[in-house]
């Protein structure tokens, strides 16, 4: 579980992609995301996913993004099953499941290569309300902490004879209650403590606090942004005009 979910977490790196302006990385991820949405066939989505994995490999984050693929595959199976159950259409069910993988993988590349601090700056650039930015970035920052909490809670409950891997699905779901309740309680307590700590350090004292970091796009960032937009236009054109309409 820990292995799978770490696919969404940032780890610092020195690759070219890591060093790109985070706003440009966001643009790239949005374009890849849109490509996954506009793709009409499974093989087109496969091209998008392969491209994302290629960029991840260049950014030396392939293993992490690969974990995201493994993680989302579990959900895409569920999406496929539900779609097929309702529509009885194999092709559209596979397409929806594949599209989900494409969407999540393209956003995962952004989160894996962008630190919470950079994410905060990007959100501030878009002039989003400070409270929303802070809440979102704090949530991202606390994901590893929550995962660690969950592991410790599971350890504690297993030590009290809780069998989490035995029994039918219903029993397994029920066995999650002793893990989820302490996890929610500790998270709520922690968020209350964090709010108090922030207020005691003058959070909200001025409407527009100053910022240490000011992003300025370099020439390389501009080149990447233009290249990404051109590639997107080319991909969209290929999807709708050049590439043949193939089924599964």
């Amino acid at each position: 579980m820990m292995w799978l979910s770490s696919g969404f977490l940032f780890r610092s790196g020195k690759s070219f992609y890591h060093r790109i302006d985070p706003r440009v990385k966001l643009l790239c991820s949005i374009l890849m995301f849109v490509c996954a949405i506009i793709a009409r066939f499974v093989y087109e989505i496969a091209i998008v996913v392969a491209f994302v994995l290629g960029v991840a490999a260049a950014a030396k984050a392939l293993r992490r993004v690969g974990r995201t693929v493994a993680f989302t595959s579990l959900f895409s199976v569920l999406i496929f099953g539900l779609n097929f159950f309702v529509t009885r259409d194999l092709e559209s069910s596979v397409l929806y499941a594949a599209r989900f993988v494409g969407i999540v993988v393209s956003t995962s590349l952004f989160f894996v290569t962008t630190s919470p601090d950079e994410l905060e700056q990007v959100m501030k650039t878009f002039r989003l309300p400070r409270d929303i930015v802070f809440a979102f970035v704090t949530a991202v920052r606390f994901v590893p902490v929550l995962m660690l909490d969950a592991m410790q809670i599971m350890d504690a409950q297993k030590s009290r004879g809780l069998e989490m891997q035995k029994g039918n699905v219903l029993r397994r779901i029920r066995s999650m209650v002793p893990v989820l309740v302490p996890l929610v309680v500790t998270s709520v307590v922690r968020s209350g403590e964090l709010a108090e700590a922030m207020e005691s350090r003058a959070y909200g004292a001025v409407p527009r606090p100053t910022s240490l970091v000011q992003y300025r796009a370099r020439a390389a960032d501009k080149v990447v942004a233009v290249a990404a937009l051109l590639l997107f236009a080319l991909t969209a054109y290929s999807f709708y005009v050049v590439l043949p309409p193939l089924g599964l």
């Binding site: 909490d149 809670i153 030590s159 309740v181």
Partner: peptide, 13 residues
């Protein structure tokens, strides 16, 4: 083997 972990909040539910 019974273990009392450091943080009691991790087991009370």
């Amino acid at each position: 083997v019974g273990v009392a972990f450091q943080n009691p909040d991790h087991q009370l539910f």
